[in-house]
């Protein structure tokens, strides 16, 4: 896997090699109501509403 590829970037390399170039980073105003960094809350909501849970794993690189 290329070390400075945008996506996907292997995490084993990420701490060492990705400073010069990494995956796409943050932006504003998503059209979907994302819960941030709270798996327990999101899982609870998904169970209550009986809908699937979508998870996006990312990093601000």
């Amino acid at each position: 896997m290329n070390a400075h590829r945008r996506a996907p970037l292997l995490l084993a390399l990420a701490g060492v090699l990705a400073l010069a170039a990494g995956p796409v980073r943050a932006a504003a105003k998503p059209v979907l109501p994302f819960i941030k960094d709270d798996y327990a809350r999101a899982l609870h909501e998904a169970r209550a509403r009986q809908v699937p849970l979508f998870i996006g794993a990312w990093a601000p690189w």
Binding site: R25, D37, V51, L53, F54, G56
Partner: peptide, 26 residues
């Protein structure tokens, strides 16, 4: 993705079909 895809209006119709979670792995 967050800059260009999750801002795309075509995804809005799916908003109620899932619970949406993003995790900053750092």
């Amino acid at each position: 993705m967050r800059a260009f895809v999750f801002t795309d209006r075509s995804l809005a119709r799916h908003a109620g079909q899932f619970v949406w979670l993003e995790i900053d792995t750092e």
